[in-house]
Design a binder for these strands. Structure first.
Length: 486
RNA sequence: GGUCCCAUCGUCUAGCGGUUAGGACGCUGGCCUCUCACGCCGGAAACUCGGGUUCGAUUCCCGGUGGGACCA
């Protein structure tokens, strides 16, 4: 059997990582089986459509490498792939259902439905359409149709018996038919509901594995009844549990952090996001945690999907992102880091590759960068107390002495590069017979004005260059002279 | 409220009748070190509760509790 899976998003202008994960699993399963991955746009609910949303879906899938084989823009033998363009198709199938007696026209208006709702509510009963229009005679129906009365088409659910379906992750699920509502299949404007379009399309597109969010688990029995009525083969169901923001809330639009686009903007790598969400609710059966998309295709299996909802953990994503960053060759890292470095460093006389070198191991996400190197363009105001470090065995007085020694050493130096600086400064340390921190801590402090910096004193001197380094050391000396005198 | 689903460290998870309950993130102690970070080594940290079944339950069954989804 040739595997065909689909990702069927509604174009609501937002792609959070939960949606993306569903797309990923559908893609992985198709590719794992050398099958076909289909993109279908579910826009039957015209009110919810947001401009540009379809483009966002295309863009996100393309960027992450979830390339679809058939879709609105690519075509395929099962098109069209946009539901509203398929509108004529659904009517035909709805008529078939009416003929078979598994669907009926319902002329009940809003007011009647509202009355029904209230009366059921008063008796503390769940809302269920009472089937009044089911009892309409042929003549009555003809009459109403002729009069142009608006109507919907409802699914006629058997009042007896139970429906069972098999889910690949949850196993067999059985529901009493009596608890199911005669749901609307076709709205009064002739548009199918999501519930109906979905079943028809999955069948016509020969989808073998319906991989989707768990929110459809409870409507699946109704879908199954439709498949049965048509005499269609039921696809394999794969329902994936929700991705949660916390124990109480699933990811939502309002929780902006969960949007794929936002993560990219914050300097996360698409590879890390894909890797992380793959692991969120699926495990490969080994303790391996790092995967490229290709490796995921290889390793993926439906059996590894977990039943319980998973809370999205930014910390782990961030860690994974750091892993991917560190694995990059330095040149690649520099390329990615450059725009972020430029946010903080406007000076033109600095070799930015040197900055990338010290940043490489210290970056978990690219947005960390500007804050780490904000001292390069401008020496921040800092307190002489920064020169005091018990561990480095320095205080204001020791630091003053060290900076004076460093200043005269560096003023005399002929070459200004990392190697020379390192050699000369360590020679000074040896000559003075002190712990290296006694020299290097004050140097780093004077050069950066910060308690923590990427890179040490030698590296910073190299980055900043001769003139700026000497100037900053002099500033430090001046500050310390005041502090010690005061 | 009705129906369905779920339940192992704070989080993601392994486990599929007998384990010192494993890994990862995070937290934490140490080493390395030119601060921080990286890296390396260690630590704390979990089977929701109550009944069964069984020689033996984290594991199987029933119920409670908690959480989620769908329908309203």
């Amino acid at each position: 059997m040739k595997v065909r899976t689909r990702f069927a998003p509604s174009p609501t202008g937002y792609m959070h990582v939960g949606n993306l994960r569903t797309a990923l699993y559908a893609y992985l399963w198709a590719k794992k089986n050398k099958g076909t991955f289909i993109l279908r746009i579910e826009d039957t609910d015209q009110e919810r459509i947001v401009e540009g949303a379809v483009e966002l879906i295309y863009h996100t899938l393309e960027e992450t490498g979830l390339i679809w084989d058939e879709g609105p823009d690519k075509g395929g033998a099962y098109g069209p792939y946009i539901q509203h363009e398929r509108k004529p198709i659904y009517g035909k199938y709805a008529d078939q259902l009416i003929e078979k007696g598994v669907a009926y026209r319902c002329f009940c208006d809003k007011e009647r439905l509202e009355e029904l709702r209230i009366s059921l509510q008063l008796r503390k009963l769940p809302f269920r359409y009472d089937g009044r229009c089911k009892k309409l005679s042929k003549g009555e129906i003809e009459q109403k149709l002729a009069a142009g009365e608006p109507h919907v088409i409802r699914q006629s659910i058997p009042t007896m018996g139970a429906t069972t379906f098999e889910d690949e992750v949850f196993g067999a699920i059985t529901v009493e038919n009596a608890t199911l509502d005669d749901q609307v299949l076709v709205k009064s404007d002739g548009m199918p509901t999501y519930n109906f379009a979905n079943v028809v399309d999955d069948h016509l597109m020969e989808i073998t594995h319906v991989i989707r969010g768990n929110e459809y688990l409870s409507s699946t029995p109704k879908y199954n009844l439709l498949y049965a009525a048509f005499g269609w083969e039921v696809p394999h169901y794969v329902h994936c549990s929700q991705v949660m923001r916390d124990a109480q809330h699933k990811l939502s639009k309002r929780d902006g952090d969960a949007s794929y686009a936002d993560f990219i903007e914050k300097g996360y790598l698409k590879e890390a996001i894909i890797n992380y969400i793959a692991l969120l609710g699926w495990n490969p059966g080994t303790e391996r945690e790092k995967f490229t998309l290709e490796e995921l295709v290889e390793a993926f299996d439906l059996g590894g999907i977990s039943r319980s909802p998973a809370i999205f953990d930014v910390h782990k994503l961030t860690w994974l992102n750091g892993q991917f960053i560190r694995e990059m060759p330095l040149e690649k890292f520099h390329e990615c880091a450059l725009p972020w470095i430029r946010r903080a460093v406007k000076r033109e006389d600095i070799d930015l590759t040197k900055i990338s070198r010290v940043l490489h191991d210290r970056t978990e996400k690219f947005s960390d960068i500007p804050g780490q190197i904000d001292f390069i363009d401008t020496l921040p105001d800092y307190s002489p107390a920064l020169y005091v470090s018990k561990k480095m065995k320095t205080d204001e007085k020791v630091s003053l002495e060290s900076l004076r020694a460093i200043l005269s050493l560096l003023e005399s130096i002929t070459r200004w590069d990392h190697e020379t600086l390192h050699r000369e400064i360590f020679a000074l340390i040896e000559k003075k017979g002190v712990k290296s921190g006694v020299i290097l801590w004050p140097l780093r402090t004077a050069l950066s004005g910060k308690q923590f910096t990427p890179g040490g004193g030698v590296e910073l001197a190299d980055v900043l260059g001769r003139e700026e380094s000497l100037r900053r050391i002099r500033v430090g000396i001046g500050m310390l002279e005041n502090a010690v005198a005061g």
